[in-house]
């Protein structure tokens, strides 16, 4: 008894701070699943939020972007993002972003989405479809610079990097309202 207490006590004392700090209830099925280390998570976590906090270091220019685009993107998206197999990547022109209306199909990513990081995140994770995730961070910054320039969002000499990209104000930044009904639902028609 005394022996087991001698061993248990230090463990109990060590466990107290953890128990106090833990926000969540203990596991119900601790034998199932494998803990992930920080290194594990870094090896797969590529999702980038609106503020760009997860953006990796890197940089790219409009000119570099034109080169990357011609090599990796043009085959589907067409020369300079136009007349390709899917809808145009360019609406508006340098210095003149498209500002709606958006009732129909006249929209593309740069003209429509609220945050500049969405372009980086999607291109980084999902492009090109034949080998998604194969673009280096510098290539992604460059392609985003290229697309933003031709859609009238940044200037020709602007450099996109992990600091400057999240600060770009997209033309449709204020084109969204929060989801309603909020969740849990308010007392409003759900088809509102």
């Amino acid at each position: 008894m005394s022996c087991s207490l001698k061993f248990l006590l230090p463990a109990m004392i060590a466990a107290i701070p953890l128990a106090v700090l833990a926000q969540s209830p203990p596991r119900a099925y601790p034998n199932v699943g494998t803990p992930l280390s920080e290194a594990d998570i870094q090896s797969f976590d590529r999702m980038i939020g609106p503020e760009g906090k997860e953006l990796p270091p890197g940089h790219g220019t409009v000119k570099e972007g034109a080169d990357v685009f011609a090599r990796r993107c043009e085959i589907c998206h067409g020369r300079n993002g136009e007349n390709g197999l899917i809808r145009s990547l360019v609406i508006g022109s340098p210095g003149k972003p498209y500002r709606g209306p958006f009732y129909g199909d006249e929209r593309n990513g740069p003209s429509y989405y609220p945050y500049p990081t969405i372009a980086w995140d999607y291109i980084n994770r999902a492009m090109p479809p034949s080998n998604p995730g194969s673009l280096a961070p510098n290539d992604v910054y460059a392609v985003v610079a290229f697309l933003f320039y031709w859609n009238g969002i940044i200037k020709e000499n602007d450099v996109m990097d992990e600091k400057s990209l999240p600060k770009v104000v997209m033309p449709n930044r204020n084109g969204f309202v929060p989801a309603v009904p909020v969740y849990p639902p308010e007392k409003k028609p759900s088809w509102f």
Binding site: M47, F102, Y103, G109, Y112, Y113, Y115, N174, F176
Partner: peptide
């Protein structure tokens, strides 16, 4: 607000002043 949800899964409506719900 990832690519598909912001780009393809929202719609601008006159009753929202031409804005779209997130």
């Amino acid at each position: 607000m990832t690519w598909n949800e912001s780009m393809n899964h929202s719609v601008s409506r006159p009753d929202l002043g031409g804005k779209a719900r997130w």
